[in-house]
Design a protein around this nucleic acid. Structure first.
Lengths: 231, 231
DNA sequence: AAGTTAAACGGACCTCGGTCCGGATCGTAA
DNA sequence: TTACGATCCGGACCGAGGTCCGTTTAACTT
């Protein structure tokens, strides 16, 4: 008993794991229908909520998307929003899900140079430029949908992008630490950086794109000499 | 009048600008004394608050550092905490300020290879490895002190690090877009990435250090061919 | 059609970051 | 020492995210 009290003070409260919340972001090959088999009322409310959220974004910007406001606008209880989307980040992510899947389809199975067929380095360049442009639109939502630091790298959508970059990088620079380089490249494409450079520093998107291509060239250049030891 | 109402709905509420809150992070060359000339009681409370905060971090981790808890532990009102440090991020940043200044001193005026005297590329390698090690300790605090996305690049401490990297980069790779490359490099050293790679992926710090040196080598390698056009 | 159950609902409730302002306190000038 | 004004203090207050749990309801069974 004492042990239980002690543990409960140290460990996270309870796994709980009833987990009815959806995990968007993965491109599913099969049915193009609605994600899971929701109960009729649940599906209806989900649609209402997404519509209401989109309207709020259009009217008051991402900052105006309060969980309570969305619930009210959708004529639904607050608890329902959280049950469906887990948290605010989940809701915002769901709003981005459509464009996300379109993008995944483009580089997974679309035409070259983004899709399969072109040389890896070429695909990398195209990938970055496309992602930069996508981030430039939707910037506000992308920023607002940024998850908390702990989860940032676990988000399915992000893992897909990362894996793709790592894969291309392994082909284009076989002797490098592709995983670390991929993280570096992904950092360059992150919405926060894009926001800072374009909105706060006023850089034109073209400069970011040139920078990306230069970056890819450096990453995939013929191998450097023997690696120098760390300090 | 209508105009005023309209504006007040669009613009941020009021500049307010009474701004008694401190701006830590800059290394001041002159007096090593306490930052501004605070009133006696203010200085006393500031010290109490920092001590209380540090104790809470030690006891319950960064997540246990609630503004109210800190205030209570310091026998001080909640408003006082905000008046002194602005917000939670400010308080956490203040906790890191000492180590921050030590680090700044090391690469601004310390002995080579970190400080002036060594070749730029060499200094860059040393800089990254040192920053990686510093982030590895203090990781929890660094993460908790991460500001909101909009301010992330405006924080003085971060600007100092960035400027330093950009400066060295301009020397080591004169023909590149040093600013963009510097942002890329800084991303590699960001606490969130370090946390993910070391804590969530279990990578040893040595691998991150090797990766950094490799990265620097690629950035400062002899110029690549003519830049390819963006896609 | 009635019964059963798992799922969904809704809103009261909690926590925590952040604001506000009347009142207490310090430093200084007379 | 007293008086005064700038600075600081404190805690009530607010908004928003997130949780909980008693109630309702869709879907399936008999």
């Amino acid at each position: 008993m004492l042990y239980a009290v002690f543990m409960s003070a140290v460990l996270p409260p309870i796994p709980q794991s009833q987990e009815p919340v959806e995990r968007p972001g993965l491109l599913q090959v099969g049915t193009a229908e609605e994600e899971p088999c929701l109960r009729a009322d649940a599906a209806r409310n989900r649609a209402r909520l997404l519509e209401a959220a989109a309207r709020l974004v259009a009217e008051h910007g991402a900052a105006g998307v309060t969980m309570e406001a969305v619930a009210t606008a959708a004529n639904v209880g607050k608890g329902t929003v959280f049950r469906r989307f887990g948290d605010r980040t989940g809701l915002l992510t769901a709003l981005l899900d459509h464009s996300e899947k379109k993008f995944q389809a483009a580089f997974l199975s679309g035409p070259p140079p983004l899709g399969p067929g072109a040389h890896p380095a070429e695909r990398l360049r195209a990938f970055g430029c496309a992602l930069l442009r996508r981030s430039a639109d939707e910037l506000e939502l992308q920023l607002a949908a940024e998850p908390s630091p702990e989860r940032r790298f676990s988000v399915p959508a992000r893992r897909v992008l990362f894996s793709h970059v790592a894969l291309l990088l392994r082909q284009a620079a076989p002797h490098a630490d592709a995983e670390l380089l991929a993280h570096t490249l992904m950092g360059y494409l992150s919405p926060v950086l894009v926001h800072h450079l374009t909105r706060q520093c006023g850089m034109p998107l073209e400069r970011l794109e040139s920078g990306w291509c230069d970056l890819v060239d450096r990453m995939t250049a013929t191998e450097t000499g023997p690696p120098s030891a760390p300090h």
